[in-house]
Amino acid sequence: MKILVVDDETDVRTLFEQRFRREIRNGQFSFSFAYSGEEALRYLHEHASEVVLILSDINMPGMSGLELLKRIKQEYAAPPPPSPQVMMITAYGDADSRAEALQLGANDFLTKPVDFTALKDKLLQLATHEN
């Protein structure tokens, strides 16, 4: 299952690679990283049908996570290919952001610091569901 992680903090890559090293090693998950909304969109255009799940930070300079979400939902409005799942991750776990994200079509809403155990469960669930 290919997952695109979007965050302006580059250390997120190291963190994910270590957290999911077993899953990566046994080929369960494959991660790609984008450090801005714009970059994420470019990546999606280049790898249109590969990405199953997008984990995106909301608070980023330039294109925000919510903006990215909006664009993705617009572009994949008419399937095929089916729209990838989008999970939003934010440091501001307030009700407004959550409501806005869900209203824009986010599949889930996580707050930082990310509970990786919970995230792993969710991802595994998705993976089995996918299969």
Partner: peptide, 21 residues
């Protein structure tokens, strides 16, 4: 707060993952 929260999250996350390692 956001600027402090971010590095603190990393500290927590990297500590956790290191414990796993």
């Amino acid at each position: 707060a956001h600027e402090i929260q971010n590095p603190l999250n990393f500290v927590t996350n990297f500590s956790d993952v290191s414990a796993e390692l």
